[in-house]
């Protein structure tokens, strides 16, 4: 409040005498309008501007550039636009990318660095390695933008350079995938990793996406100890996840949640069991076991399939090029059965 001085001969006096031709007194007085306003006032003006305008204001002067790149301002925009689809894991991954970028920038290899992308963290063990995020191109992080965590995150999401983990609703299922944003169509493109990259879909709408409710790699099983807390009326959903250790194996996981808290997950056989124990399944079968029927759903426990796999290990004396698992032949009969 008292930083607007009423005394015309305070700290500006020196400045005037040192630079008599540089700026007029008028200039200095009106400059003080900008420089003496507390940051809170700037904040309240700038937080009303769009991301694009904030970026534009960075070109005005160093003072505005620094304030317009602040995390406090960009956090609002990140939350507003991306809050529904990015979870804690995205922030963790982003921290990794931005740290790598800074190290690259300061490191001796920066000049000859030809690689543009940046890999996030891995989970699982070979050959089932899951990449949790990656950047197609991180050349923008070589600039001072890498000092602005939130702004850099916003623009990397907006420009579609950042592939980040989400869960996608597909019919009855929820499945894990990495997605990138396409600003032109305002939709997402999704990829899934399981023995190589697979396209999951494009033109995916915002409402088909959500942040993973728990921070867990897609190959891990989540074990919950609060099964007894389940009660009728709880939200139930089915997630399709890859099984740990088997690249092609997929199985269903039932996720029962109270509000947004994940309570339990189970495998191909366990899922049906879990549902039936909760009173969802064929009424006749459940009654026979003395279970109260919540919903008569004859499909539960039917049509069970699983993907068994045999592993053949051939020791080699010569070094062998490492590739991910590939399909080398499919019989006609099995082709007819392929249903995804």
């Amino acid at each position: 409040m008292d930083n607007i001085s009423s005394d015309p001969f305070d700290d500006t006096t020196d400045y005037i005498s040192n630079n008599p031709f540089d700026r007029t007194t008028d200039d200095i007085e009106s400059r003080s309008v900008l420089l003496t306003l507390p940051e809170a006032i700037w904040q309240s003006i700038l937080e009303r501007l769009s991301p694009k305008e904030l970026a534009g204001l960075c070109k005005v002067c160093t003072f505005l550039r620094d304030i317009c790149r602040s995390d406090r301002l960009w956090e609002i925009h990140v939350e507003k636009k991306w809050g529904g689809v990015i979870g804690d894991v995205v922030y963790k991954e982003w921290k990794l990318h931005i740290t790598t970028a800074k190290e690259k920038r300061n490191g001796p290899l920066y000049q000859q660095n030809s690689e543009n992308g940046s890999l996030g963290s891995f989970s699982g063990t070979w050959p089932t390695l899951y990449l949790r995020s990656y950047l197609d191109d991180c050349s923008h992080l070589n600039s001072s933008l890498s000092n602005s965590f939130m702004m850099a995150l916003y623009v990397s999401l907006e420009t579609g350079k950042f592939w980040f983990p989400v869960q996608i609703y597909r019919g009855l299922f929820v499945r894990e995938a990495l997605v990138r944003y396409d600003s032109k169509s305002d939709t997402f493109r999704a990829r899934r990793q399981s023995g190589g990259w697979h396209k999951v879909g494009s033109n995916i709408q915002w409402d088909k996406l959500r942040a993973p409710p728990i921070d867990m790699p897609p190959c891990d099983e989540y074990v919950s100890d609060c099964l007894q807390d389940l009660k009728p009326g709880d939200h139930v959903e089915i997630q399709r996840r890859s099984r740990n250790g088997i690249p092609y194996g997929r199985f269903l996981v039932i996720l029962l949640s109270q509000l947004s808290d994940t309570l339990a997950t189970a495998g191909a056989i366990g899922s049906s069991q879990l549902l039936m124990l909760s009173g969802i399944g064929p009424a006749k079968h459940m009654k026979a076991h003395g279970i109260n029927v919540v919903l008569d759903q004859p499909q539960v426990g039917q049509g069970m399939t699983d993907n068994p796999m045999n592993l053949l290990v051939v020791p080699s004396l010569l070094p062998v090029e490492v590739t991910l698992v590939q399909t080398v032949g499919i019989t006609k009969a099995s082709l007819n059965q392929v249903v995804d």
């Binding site: 400059r31 900008l34 960075c58 070109k59 005005v60 003072f63 050349s139 923008h140 623009v155």
Partner: peptide, 29 residues
Amino acid sequence: VEFIRNFFNIVNDFTPEEEAEIRKTNEWV
């Protein structure tokens, strides 16, 4: 940018390097 500089009476205090860096970032963004 000129309008904003005039409005707040701000002098452009960027070095040419800084200005180029911002232009590059904004083009990218």
